[in-house]
């Protein structure tokens, strides 16, 4: 049985400062990410997400606790050749062109020249930068920089990826491409550690999520566990005049109206069916009807608001 892609036990990190005292970034964080999962890491700014990722990459020393990445200590250099990392704040070497930059990144990961000659053009094609490979990186837009950052992450065909805000700076098409890429990588058995403020994206692609709050694990589970039925039903009607509004109000508890959509909270299915019959009898056409689930965003906001 293969070891977990990421496993931490009581991980703690205290940043010490001579003049400003200490800051507790992580407190007893224990998580496990299994191979082949897309693992979402959520939390407010300063919750400890970046510190956790940096410990897992060997960039920051933990104060106590243990961490294993692909079965190894994160401080070991060689196992990192199986890892890809896209930091949130990248500073690219401006004097290099895309190919030279990727060659350097690849060489640092121990890739030989032949492999790099094969992979670099394919990757540039994949991230949509093949036509811009002759430009210096300083001429790249924010979106292009994000794409080249993503390319260097994939260069060593890693088993585990840490992506910090991978869709930052990308247009909607670019975002969709990244989401599709993540799903493709999961199918290939890669594990992805995704750190994003775009909760809708996390909800769409993640298998499991951890929400960090003040350096502690506040919640861990699947996105489906975080989003639940609210008991509300949304009905989109062809019209919403006074007659219709009275009919709805007399048949079920109305939460609110949004244009011609009404949010009702029926007691049970019988009451909901009675409401539908009532509306049909008017007659008014029901264009859509769906149960309302709370979003991950709502769940997240409720959770981080808790004292």
């Amino acid at each position: 049985m293969s070891p977990p892609a990421v496993a931490t036990q009581n991980l703690e990190k205290q940043f010490r400062s001579l003049f400003r005292g200490g800051t507790r970034a992580l407190a007893g964080v224990s998580i496990t990410a299994e191979p082949g999962q897309i693992f979402g890491l959520l939390g407010q700014n300063g919750a400890g997400k970046t510190t956790l990722v940096k410990i897992l990459l060997g960039l920051v020393w933990p104060t106590s606790g243990s961490a294993k990445v692909l079965g190894h200590n994160p401080l070991e250099a060689r196992p990192r050749r199986r890892i890809g990392y896209l930091p949130e704040q990248m500073r690219l070497p401006e004097h290099l062109k895309a190919e030279s930059f990727l060659r350097y990144m690849g060489r640092l990961n121990g890739l030989d020249s032949r492999t790099l000659r094969q992979r670099i053009p394919a990757l540039l094609e994949q991230v949509g930068l093949a036509g811009d490979k002759r430009k210096l990186l300083r001429e790249y837009s924010k979106g292009m920089q994000q794409r080249i950052g993503l390319a260097q992450t994939l260069l060593n065909e890693p088993d585990l990826l840490f992506l910090d805000e991978p869709t930052e700076g990308l247009d909607p098409v670019g975002r969709k491409e990244v989401r599709d890429l993540l799903v493709r990588l999961r199918v290939q058995g890669k594990t992805i550690f995704l750190n994003s403020h775009l909760l809708s994206e996390i909800e769409l692609v993640c298998d499991r999520c951890v929400i960090l709050r003040k350096g502690e694990v506040a919640k861990e589970g699947t996105p489906a566990e975080f989003t639940r039925d609210t008991g509300e039903v949304r009905m989109r009607l062809a019209r919403a005049d006074e007659t219709v509004q009275q009919a709805v109000a007399s048949a079920a508890e109305v939460q609110r109206w949004e244009n011609s959509s009404v949010y009702v909270r029926p007691r049970d299915r019988v009451q909901l069916n009675a409401l539908i019959d009532r509306l049909r009898a008017l007659p008014v056409e029901i264009e859509a009807i769906e149960p309302v689930r709370s979003t991950l965003e709502e769940f997240f906001i409720d959770l981080v608001k808790e004292p």
Binding site: P87, Q89, R91, L108
Partner: peptide, 14 residues
């Protein structure tokens, strides 16, 4: 430099 160091030191090199 911040942002560049992270990219290099997270690679498989001592």
């Amino acid at each position: 430099e911040k942002g560049w160091a992270e990219m290099q030191f997270s690679k498989g090199i001592g």
